[in-house]
Structure formats: C-alpha cells, structure tokens
Design a protein around this nucleic acid. Structure first.
Lengths: 189, 189
DNA sequence: AGTTTTATGTGATGTAGATCACATATTATT
DNA sequence: AATAATATGTGATCTACATCACATAAAACT
C-alpha cells in the first residue's frame, strides 16, 4: 500500500478512489543530501511529506548559530508553517541531511482537499493537534531540564535520531553546545 | 453578539441557529482567583474557552518550581491538551489568577460538533494550526535568546500580560529566575 | 588510496544567570 | 486601620554551561 495512504489511514479510512484523488494533489520531489527545501526569505508555497530521508528545519541566528526547530524523517510533515499558512516569506531554512524523497502539497491544494473532503479536514486537524501537544512537551522540556535531562528525554522519544543525525545537530536541537553534549556522552557510559 | 460567536466568526461565518446549537454543547463555569481548573493527576474531560479572567497552565517540577506552559486570557482556549485528547490524567495544573468565567467543552461534544458540522472541524483545524505556529515561535525564542531578549519578545507579543500578571510568573514562563527578571527591569529604564 | 571536509573529544577559562539572603513594597484579609 | 500574605528589589556568591583552542577520528570526494 502507498505510504501516504497508510499514513492517512492511521487517522481515517479512505477508499482507493479517494486516495488516488488525494494523491493527485501532491507532486513528488527528490533531493540529495545538503540540498535545501526552503531558504530564509523565499516564499513558502508547499508543505512536504517525507517518503524517505531526513531533514532539519532550523533558524540561523545573527551570530551564525543554528537552532533546530524540527527534524523530519519518514512519515513526517515539514515546512515553515508560519510562512506557509500566511503565504509569506520563510524565516527558517530546511535542508536535507540525507537523500530525500518528498511529496509536496500547496496550500491551495491542502485547503481544496479539506473543503471537498471532510475526512481530510479531520485528518489535518488531528495531525495538527498531535503536533501541538508534542511542541508543548518540548517547551516543558526546555524550561524544566538540565542539558543532561533534555538529552535523555530526546533519546527516549526519538532513539532513531541518535543513529541518523550528527550529534552536533542534536545539540542544536536541544539548545546546548556540542562540547557539552559530547561530555554528557562521555559521562553517561 | 455572543463572545464565542464572534470568536468563531473570525474564522468561519455561522448562522444564529447554528451558533445556538453549538453553544448548547458548552457549559459555563465561574471560578474565583486562586481556584483551580485542572490539577495534576485528575482526569481531563474538558477544554475551556475564556470569557473573562486570566489563568496559568503550569508544570510543577520535583524541586517545586513552576514552569508556565501558557497563560490564557479572554478568547483563549486552555486545557491540558495532551491529557484531554488522550482522555487521560493531567500532568499539569491550571489555576485562575483572576476571577474567571469559562465555557467548557467535553471531548465528546467537540468531536460530535466536528463531525456534524464541517465548518466547526475547519474552525478547530485553523485554531490548532495557529497554536502550532505560536509554539514553534516560542521554541525558537527559548533556543535563541538571552533572558533579556526573551523578555522583550514576550512583552512585544503580549503587552497585556505585563499589566495583569505578576512578574514572577512572567519569569516562570520565560524560564528565567524572578531575580534576573527584576534586574532586567531595573536596567531597561 | 590519499586528501579534504566534517564530526567528535577533551582540557582550560569565562560568564550569564541561578541561588541565597534579606530588605522593602504592594496587595489581601480580618 | 492593622496584620498577614504576596510580590518585588538588590547585593554577594556559586555553578552549569558556553566559549576557545587544539587534538583525533570518521566520512566524503578526487
């Protein structure tokens, strides 16, 4: 079965006909490692469903430091949502950290599908709710915890990241310096 | 016009009949300052729309420190969403920091309205999207910034808070000690 | 296979902000 | 109005983590 169909059916059943129709609103995109999906300042027109690969969404601070907002792997969605929903210019960057296969969905097509198919509006509401909850948890983790605790929480939540993503990027996600993270690794064994 | 109707119509128009039907799914609740809406460990059954007043949603760390996830004022929604969507036990507290008037909505009624009225599902999707974007911005602010910058960003975004909420609570929201915040105030003038 | 690039480890030193301690306002409560 | 409770201010000290500097190791490219 198609990966996206499977993904949608975790929330709502859809027929093959319906899925075919839905899929026709996406376009596919292949990118190599180090290529970008979104760059700061560019108009954000599409949301991206990850079929394969891994990406990072990050903000570049004036001092050149990268602050990672989100990683995205198989079955995740990623874009600059602020810019996407407002159809305005990106304030973040999104880069491939592995070769990637994406399905892209324009805001127009998203809204079209949502208004034509109540099921799809339901699907996106549920996804958005889940995302909201996950971000709240992350905020609590950022407020609460020492570098060590944050790191442990991240590894517990997304053990796959540890394998796939350079540790300096995990540090940039946690808001900790790569040196501190390295020392945590040393002491944790 | 009813405050909730006005609120919904910022996203989608509804007739008086429709609104009457929607409203019949809410119940109203009045609470005094210092009373609680949700306590850690209790089952979370309802979402809350604030008609009047101000609340804080916070996590209590083991060391007794309060980490504020969210404030809620007029026209905001607040609950422990993680627990609410899973119909499970709260991991956070929500208290009134002023006398409050709330409209409460059970998950059952929320889902009922969403499935009966496509418009309402649309409304909640849009609200959730906006919330997601706001949380992303907050995460970037937490990752990026010094205590001073975070404080300035907060005051720019929600100047009302400065008037209504004790500064030690703003500190707990920013993840900064109240002493540090006080020193920022002193130097900023 | 060799060379460049990128990632990681580890010591020495610096610093923003926490914590502690207590004084002073401000706000509730009787 | 008096008293209690809560909020804020401010100095002195401490500490987790950042930053800098350089060594080592692992990928990536030719």
């Amino acid at each position: 079965m198609h990966q996206l169909k499977q993904h949608i059916e975790k929330i709502t059943p859809i027929s093959d006909k319906e899925f075919e129709y839905i899929l026709s609103h996406f376009t596919s995109k292949k990118l190599r490692k180090h290529q970008y999906v979104i760059q700061e300042g560019e108009l954000v027109t599409h949301d991206h469903f990850v079929l394969k690969g891994c990406l990072k969404a990050y903000h570049l601070a004036k001092d050149g430091k990268e602050h990672i907002l989100q990683f995205a792997m198989e079955d995740w969605w990623v874009t600059d949502y602020q810019a996407y929903f407002k159809q305005s210019k990106a304030t973040i960057h999104i880069d491939c950290i592995e070769d990637c296969e994406l399905l892209t969905l324009s805001l127009h097509n998203r809204e079209k599908l949502c208004s034509e198919m109540h099921k799809i509006e339901h699907f996106f509401r549920k996804k958005s709710n889940a995302g909201y909850v996950a971000l709240q948890q992350r905020i609590l983790s950022l407020l609460n915890s020492s570098a060590k605790e944050k790191y442990e929480q991240l590894l517990k939540l997304y053990p796959q990241l540890f394998q796939r993503v350079p540790k300096q990027l995990l540090a940039a996600y946690l808001g900790v310096s790569r040196e501190t993270l390295s020392r945590l690794n040393a002491s944790n064994k």
